[in-house]
Design a protein around this nucleic acid. Sequence first.
DNA 1: ATAGGGTTAG
Length: 463
Amino acid sequence: MAGAKLSSSYHLAAALRREPDAAAALRLFLNPTSAAPSSAPPPFRYSLRCYDIIVCKLAAARLFPEMESVLAGLPPSLRPREPLLCRVISAYGRARLPFAARRAFAHPAFPDPRTSRALNTLLHALLACRAPLSEILGECRASGIAPDACTYNILMRAAAVDDSGSVEDARNLFDEMLQRGIAPTIVTFGTLVTAYCGAGRIEEAFKVKEVMSSQYKIRPNAYVYASLMKALCQKGKVDDAVRLKEEMVRDKELVLDSGAYATLARALFRVGRKEEVVGLLEEMKGKGITVGREVYNAMIAGFCEDEGDLDAAFAALDDMQKDGCKPDAMSYNTLVAKLCKMGRWRDASELVEDMPRRGCRPDVVTYRMLFDGICDAGEFSEARKVFDEMVFKGFAPSKDGARKFIGWIEREGDDEVFLESVLCQLARINALDSSGWEKAVGGMLHEPPEQMAVKLLDDLKLT
DNA sequence: ATAGGGTTAG
């Protein structure tokens, strides 16, 4: 009998893995033996593997309430491991739900104690939620878990983010790390270089590059070069960036990828030197570097934004696919933005509708640009459809788009019920930093959306 | 996917 059980759980795991649609996978998980809904318990014991797969799928599809109920339904005998906890925390981070990420960190289904790995995942999730450095530091201290190099790298990254801290904070964290005897890694130096570059302090960034190799014997890698090249390009020093690329290429130890080339490609388009991009591509192929997604995306952006050549941009998208490189949301978003700017929102809309079939999930940027584009065109009944779809998926429109949309409904003047429902939906996901959505996830919605809606309307009218 | 870059909007 044990063999039959094992086999069933094994087959369920395989079937779950095969199912691309998370909702369908959940139905299978809840009712593995027949197609008809049933409340009877499954006839075999689920392996931890089954839980791993379904939780990951639900997390990726942002079906958070469903994911939480699966976790809550874990039998006490099955203790999921920390990697799964980390997946859950990062999923909340990607969805920008800091409260939910914090709750997951303390989730009772996972055995204690938490390690620095889980802590680091939480800190990184909070960073993804744009939490300020002070808050991330507070969380770190409150955990009582000893920080490691990875922790400091995340904190330094948080310090370097706009409006959160400053390069000085990053530098102080670096010094603190040294005082505590934690050895900086290549990632630490990459982060520090990027911090200085982000602040426009190129000389100090180059100084870090020099010190890391002379004092710490850690050679700058492609990440370090990419940051420096980007900073040079932003100051209009494209030729210096090209020279730095050549220095990078001369280092035979260095593992090259196409990342640094993307910056150069984009910069060359910006300064009207797109012919040179062909040379870059050939150089990459000659060196056996796969022309990656970022490079294709840079070219798509260049054709759209600088050349105004939509046909060439779509041709680049085709080339990308022919080369076995799968376009991502960014590839499509650039095209959607361009189509909207040209007033061709119908074409933009068709492209967005086609994305899932092409194997790419539209993201928040996709929807915001499409929604804004349709609102700008004054096609509000069409905008309403996009609004419903994005809100259903938990994506908030841009403030600008929301304002135009609300303005239109008010001008129409005869649909109080519609206005109220739109405001409530906005209140849930847009106002108050998604906390309404988070409360819904946690099943503890305190403030009625109607009350939030009143505040939100004031907010939209003020700005 | 415990951490860093590079390609899109604001």
